[in-house]
């Protein structure tokens, strides 16, 4: 499916559940509500026209105004790609684990949990993945993060 066909198909089949955002430059970028995530993701995977069977990448973003979780998915049989994001607030950000839909998300979610402090609901194993086991200095990828031995690059 080409990019335009994909956009038209999603517009007619996901009315009100996926909002097209302007930010998608290469692939179309959609916003999905946090409480609707699992249902929409399952539909994206199981739809016979879409067949999004592969989660390429997933990550968090801190824009200083809000937190975002971005998913990049692709179809290995239909050869098309799509991005979507879930937008979260700063107070107690939480998102449902997407492991039931794409099991490869497990380690991405662990990493996002420790680096951004985004709580992953119904995740089976939230031990620290990259940070030391006894880490107690918060979530280092947050923009406002600071630590005693953390040195910012001086303005040039």
């Amino acid at each position: 499916m080409t990019r335009d066909e994909l956009k038209a198909y999603i517009e007619s089949n996901f009315v009100g559940r996926m909002t097209l955002l302007e930010s998608g430059k290469v692939e179309p970028m959609y916003e999905i509500k946090a409480d609707d995530l699992i249902e929409v993701a399952t539909k994206l995977r199981d739809d016979l026209e879409l067949k999004f069977d592969f989660l390429c990448n997933m990550g968090g973003v801190d824009t200083r105004e809000r937190l975002e979780v971005i998913y990049n998915i692709a179809s290995t049989s239909k050869l098309h790609r799509l991005d979507f994001k879930v937008i979260l607030g700063y107070d107690s950000p939480a998102v449902e684990s997407i492991c039931p839909v794409w099991p490869g998300a497990n380690w991405y979610e662990r990493e996002m949990y420790e680096l951004y402090g985004i709580d992953i609901l119904n995740h089976n194993d939230l031990r620290p993945l990259l940070l030391p086991e006894d880490w107690d200095q918060g979530h280092p990828m947050r923009k406002d993060w600071d630590a005693p031995d953390f040195v910012r690059m001086p303005e040039l």
Partner: peptide
Amino acid sequence: FYYDSYSVEK
């Protein structure tokens, strides 16, 4: 990695 790094021992 002296600047802007949370993970590297100085």
